[in-house]
Design a protein around this nucleic acid. Sequence first.
DNA 1: AACATAAGGTTTACGACGTAAGGAACGAGT
DNA 2: ACTCGTTCCTTACGTCGTAAACCTTATGTT
Lengths: 224, 224
Amino acid sequence: MAQTAGSGRRTRRERLTRQRVLQSAIELADASGIEALSMRRLGEELGVEAMSLYTHVANKDDLLAGMIDAVFAEIPPPSLEVHWKTAMRDRALSVRSALLRHPWATGLMDANAAPGEATLLHHDLVIGCLRGGGFSFAMTAHAFAVLDGYIYGFALQDRSLPFETPEETGDLAEKMLAQFPAGRFPHLAAFMVEHVLQPGYDFGDEFEFGLDLILDALERRREE
Amino acid sequence: MAQTAGSGRRTRRERLTRQRVLQSAIELADASGIEALSMRRLGEELGVEAMSLYTHVANKDDLLAGMIDAVFAEIPPPSLEVHWKTAMRDRALSVRSALLRHPWATGLMDANAAPGEATLLHHDLVIGCLRGGGFSFAMTAHAFAVLDGYIYGFALQDRSLPFETPEETGDLAEKMLAQFPAGRFPHLAAFMVEHVLQPGYDFGDEFEFGLDLILDALERRREE
DNA sequence: AACATAAGGTTTACGACGTAAGGAACGAGT
DNA sequence: ACTCGTTCCTTACGTCGTAAACCTTATGTT
């Protein structure tokens, strides 16, 4: 009786896999936040006891490292065929959207864990793209540092903003400033009233401004 | 018998204070990493049981929020007297050095906690500086997002690099690449050999390049 | 068909964590 | 000297990551 994966009549449940573990962990973190991701809870999600996970994952740090690498794997690889500027622009937007889909990822990058294969591949292509675009090694290092710094930092800021919708923004801004004597933070208050609380404002929209600013500046420096 | 703070003959130990708790927590996190900061361990450091801390701190999140605000309080306030560009440059370097002193801080900024007074004051002055420098509200928002994004993101990258000294860099780079078939990451490998592993290279030095790139670009846009 | 093997999954347990609840000790004001 | 509010301690609960040992099941060999 052939009993290959999933065909047997009495397979109580799908076999566990590193893939399945990582994917479930990502779904759980996306849905309930990274602080809700415990080995027990993840096991539950997969219909399995917590300790079973350790067959496919060395420990929790390994799990987190795997999740990060899986996020990088989601990002379309930057093309080496097009002009570096468009490639880098597209890539920045791709990374940003991945970090928006998985907001917990930014906070995990401090991990002293070694980068995974997808992560290294991503970096490899970024460097290849810049070098192919005529950047010297030194300029490649500079460009890489500014671009990635900006991308991750923006995601960090975005996530640390304690509001999601414009209405929330208003409520929260008022409460924040109301804690302190009126006039304690005059510039901040004016900025809130005159700009941030205006209809249509969304912090996330700032991303492309800074991105283009940096890309244009890099282009200019490269040509110098 | 006057028994003001610290004068009594039988004060077994200094009284606890929110200040002292926060300061000890920061020292502990600086010295042993944020993951070593537990309420019990912190109590021990202060010669006190863990539960005593809760008199001065609502819970651990409040402790962490207080630590972040204390880090901002360490940063010299940006001046409103000098040209915006020098003020913003100095401030960026100050923030960076604070984040180097307290590497755990970057990872904590995701906290959904409300920003503290020192944090708000810092932001107030940054906005005041830009507005005073002739930036419109919209341009202020743009500038703020790029600058702070870059500063925090750079700190995040810097901290996530798994090496401190050049020698470590070499060892680690080799191990990282050795895990995968030679030639798997050709651009990355070349970049490492030709640039990162060259004597004298230090990723931290990249900071000022990107900072000036952004400041120059902002100046140009502001004048448009 | 019977068995050996190893891999996957489970049970139980340990020490550390954040913190709720209630008690004890202490200092200041009467 | 007595009270009272604050500070600090004791004990306890539920949760966490994971070590160790055990059981189960699918597979390959005879």
